[in-house]
Design a protein around this nucleic acid. Structure first.
Lengths: 345, 345
DNA sequence: TTGTACGCGTTATCAG
DNA sequence: CTGATAACGCGTACAA
């Protein structure tokens, strides 16, 4: 009852621990211990098992391991925009915060469709993910998934509206402040702020940071007020034309997004203004394809989304270990200088 | 030996079939059949089980199901660029080709790093994915993962270099042809082609399609030759300036990418040319943020990546069912007209 | 040091 | 129509 009943040549299927054990001439238990570095295994035996495993190209079945460990080694990533640009860096940061060996990422694109989201959620839960990261398409608060999911959840980029949940977001206020601070350090005094959709909380947060910093420097917003409209190049162009009429002495524009900044740049050039010599321009997002292709390349505020993803993963890992957290954590943005800003000589 | 030994209040853990069965007062086997719509179950019984399941908010453990079914209901998505724009639509198309209920997507970002790729591959395989979709960051052929992975593989966007593998890609030749065809239908006769990196096979494919169509119309490439350099706005601007000198009668430009097209547009405007009245411009990629923000909005060729993802998923599903395929399948691109092209009145 | 036996949650077979 | 029971692949007390 040893060698005879084993290795029934299971065609195609990946080798199992049983086959490894059989080949090494030991029991399954011993093989398991040997491969997992457990003690109470003779080193000679361990060697034999290891060789057998290598020979068979054995790779343990993570599903089976998960069954006994009561842990799948998998986290769900629920996103609202897969084509959008914001969830990707987050995802990427998250992915390498837990190494690929320990944890895999199950992706689900909810597309802002509530019912689709519920479907995906069920699917993820039935796969017994150890935790969930939810990343929104807009930086504004979103409805909580609830507390009774059975697994910890971390919201990234877009916070949950329930303070009981754990959220990590970019600090838009500090980002706005950082942008204006840079312009002031460049010696600019007549600084306008053209930003996007006024229904976005992020617009107001960035504007608030900007105005705060202006006020500290004894300055007012050029053009008389923050200009809200939409996150588009067209609006950037239009706003700039207005601005140029109202404020001939304009020497800097803080745009609420890189798209808007592109519009600002184009309108400025068209009006014969030199950038950055006469007017400096700074954007927000550090959307590479936009920021590096412009004329001149765009200085901008980077919301450090990859870092957000990293932190989200860390928080989630802690929560999985049992140390849950609450509330919204805001992380600093980063200034990326290119050529659209420069000191006023 | 019935109700007594069950429901030991397993704190926190999701309910199991056993608990559902206990609550409904039936055996596990019956509960399973009832929930799975199997026959040989009294409808009253079925009702009771269903209610119990609902009450407990039961959701079957997919890992356990996978163990017995020898199928995880999971596919791996191995991508080389998560931030890049090309893999995302593919991923999205794939994701909804197999409904979220049937199949979940395990994401892995290899980042063009070979060793990292191997790691991810092992992780995916140990999770017993039923199949693999590999999507590259560039449309050029990439090294095969090999045939002995134990699961079917489909390469999307970037084909495998092994014809034995199954690949689905965008038809760049047809795309180039489509672009020029559109320009010709608009009555243009002096058509230039400014494209990107000459080390990309895609540049040459698109150019080939373009030239073929030109030749059919008895036309030659304006400027004397296809202009290769890099996939950047700056090149688009530079090339256009050159072109304007060499070919004063220029009435259309086919740009090899939307980034290049943006540059072309800017240089044209700067030279006082009206688009599309005097010169028509068409891009390639349909990269929304670029194509809709430009002045005027850009007509472009959409490689239909989402469709590619869909087809990849379909092919993979077939292969999983046992009907494997081989070779490279090229899928048509789509013309998206905006305002940068128009008939010459 | 090694092996036996059980359990993880589910499905399928077969006997009642 | 219903219920034991045996897998699926693995980890781990516990016994030898």
């Amino acid at each position: 009852m040893s060698v005879d009943e084993v290795a029934p040549h299971r065609r195609g299927r990946p080798p199992t621990l049983r086959e490894v054990a059989a080949m090494a001439g030991v029991s399954i238990a011993t093989a398991s211990k040997a491969l997992n570095g457990r003690q109470h295994v003779g080193s000679a035996t361990r060697q034999r098992v290891q060789s057998a495993a290598d020979a068979l190209n054995f790779s343990p079945n993570a599903l089976a391991q998960g069954m006994v460990a009561q842990r799948s080694g998998t986290v769900g990533l629920l996103t609202s925009d897969l084509v959008g640009r914001f969830s990707m860096p987050v995802l990427r940061g998250a992915e390498d915060a837990f190494g690929s060996e320990k944890m895999s990422v199950l992706l689900a694109d909810a597309r802002d469709d509530h019912i689709r989201q519920q479907h995906h959620l069920r699917a993820l839960l039935s796969r017994r993910v150890d935790g969930l990261i939810v990343v929104g398409a807009q930086p504004d608060p979103r409805p909580s998934l609830g507390q009774d999911l059975g697994v910890p959840v971390v919201y990234a980029y877009a916070p949950s509206d329930d303070p009981q949940d754990m959220s990590v977001v970019a600090d838009d206020v500090a980002g706005g402040r950082l942008a204006v601070d840079h312009l002031i350090r460049c010696g600019r005094r007549t600084i306008a702020h053209v930003t996007g959709d006024p229904t976005y909380g992020a617009s107001h947060d960035r504007a608030r940071g900007a105005v705060e910093r202006l006020t500290e420097a004894g300055l007012a917003v050029a053009g008389g007020e923050v200009m809200y409209d939409s996150w588009s190049e067209a609006w950037g162009r239009g706003a700039t034309r207005l601005l140029l009429e109202r404020e001939p002495g304009l020497d800097a524009v803080f745009a609420g997004s890189d798209q808007i900044a592109r519009g600002v740049l184009d309108a400025l050039l068209e009006a014969g203004k030199r950038v950055p010599e006469e007017v400096a321009v700074i954007g927000f997002d550090n959307w590479e394809v936009l920021a590096t292709g412009s004329r001149p390349p765009l200085t901008t505020i980077d919301p450090a989304l990859e870092n957000l993803g990293r932190v989200a993963a860390l928080r989630l890992a802690s929560a999985i270990e049992g140390r849950a957290g609450h509330g919204v954590e805001a992380y600093p943005c980063r200034l990326v200088t290119r050529s659209s800003t420069a000191p006023l000589h």
